[in-house]
């Protein structure tokens, strides 16, 4: 019998959990397929099959699911992320994602595996979060638990590197677990600091190096197509980019504990904690809030950050992304923002 294949859409929380999933599936010896990078074709397909008012990250994942279906995978791995902390959920679109997909895409050939993720922390490696997966592939509980543990500690190593200042971008193009393992070991043993912490040579001519915190969800900040490659654009302009994934959990927790009441959405809280940390940091020159048009949770977060940025006298800008293909609007805003920060620095 042919070995059944399982596809992972390269969208939404893929950027957060992909080392975990790659390791898990390789331990379970499953044939894994990852959808292509987001592209115009892929997004076009997603847009056609989604509700028109929904935010662009959801349109992107619909495109990725269609892409996997065209690759003839047998199963699509699409967990229903419900909670990563007691009494805090994810955005409702994550909660309803598997239903939304099964209703928007009735002619999908592949079967969707939608385990519900109910974890108490970002570590999602509990067996009960993977029962459907185990059942589908007839994996004994013992074996599943062993694989989950291995995947979890592998993911933890990756996370520690992020906390040290590596960007998710430094890893996220890798699809093969062997290469990822090698790269992680290499970074762990490297004496060189990650790029977010070192002076870049090639940008010296463009003036002083700037430190900008780019606050946004992983699927907006690290999807190079949808954000028009903002990280590399910033790097080219002589900016060290800092993202929420670099702020360690305790930093986020500390900031969150100061809120009278945290928000309902897990990742919005994480962004808030990291953003507050950056707002208070003298080394950070400015903050960019990268948000998808129509994002509900961000309508709260954006307002809070705008008010707080004023309080800490940090330059702040909101950058909205949607389905545009023209780059001029994003370039104009980034350029003006950087000019402003440079002028401010020169003046000092």
């Amino acid at each position: 019998m042919r070995k059944k294949s399982i596809g992972i859409p390269r969208a939404l929380l893929y950027y957060y959990y992909f080392p975990f999933w790659l390791k898990l599936f390789s331990e379970l010896n499953l044939k894994t397929v990852i959808s292509d990078n987001t592209s115009r074709d892929l997004l076009d397909q997603g847009v056609k099959k989604s509700l028109s008012e929904i935010c662009v990250p959801i349109k992107v994942i619909i495109g990725h699911i269609l892409n996997l279906d065209q690759k003839d995978v047998d199963y699509i791995f699409l967990p229903r992320f419900r909670s990563l902390r007691k009494n805090v959920v994810l955005c409702p679109k994550f909660l309803g994602l598997p239903d939304m997909v099964s209703h928007s895409l009735p002619s999908l050939k592949a079967e969707i595996i939608a385990d519900q993720i109910d974890a108490k922390s970002d570590d999602i490696a509990q067996y009960f979060n993977h029962q459907k997966l185990a059942k589908t592939f007839n994996i004994p509980k013992r074996e599943m638990k062993k694989a989950l543990n291995k995947a979890s500690s592998f993911w933890q190593r990756y996370r520690n590197l992020l906390f040290e200042g590596y960007l998710i971008d430094d890893f996220s193009n890798i699809e093969e677990i062997e290469i990822l393992e090698k790269l992680i070991s290499k970074f762990e043993n490297s004496s060189k600091p990650p790029s977010s912490k070192k002076e870049e040579l090639k940008i010296a001519e463009k003036g002083e190096v700037l430190d900008i915190a780019l606050i946004g969800y992983v699927y907006n900040v690290f999807d190079q197509y949808i954000n028009m490659d903002i990280i590399n654009k910033l790097k080219e302009m002589g900016v060290r980019v800092h993202t929420f994934s670099m702020a360690a959990e305790e930093i986020v927790e500390k900031e969150l504990s100061k809120l009278r009441k945290p928000m309902f959405w897990e990742f919005t809280n994480k962004l808030y904690g990291a953003a507050e940390h950056y707002l208070k940091n003298d080394k950070i020159d400015g903050l960019i809030h990268l948000t998808a048009f129509g994002c509900g949770p961000d309508s709260m977060l954006g307002q809070i950050l705008e008010v707080d940025a004023k309080e800490y006298e940090k330059t702040f800008m909101t950058l909205r992304i949607d389905e545009q293909t023209g780059e001029s609007h994003i370039m104009t805003r980034i350029e003006a923002f950087i000019d402003l920060l440079r002028l401010k620095k020169e003046k000092k």
Binding site: N160, G165, K186, K192, M246, A248, K283
Partner: peptide
């Protein structure tokens, strides 16, 4: 990507206390 992008003096910037 990592291949010796920079040979400049590495300046330690302490942003994250881990």
């Amino acid at each position: 990507a990592e291949s010796d992008i920079n040979k400049s003096e590495d300046i330690e910037v302490e942003l994250y206390k881990v």
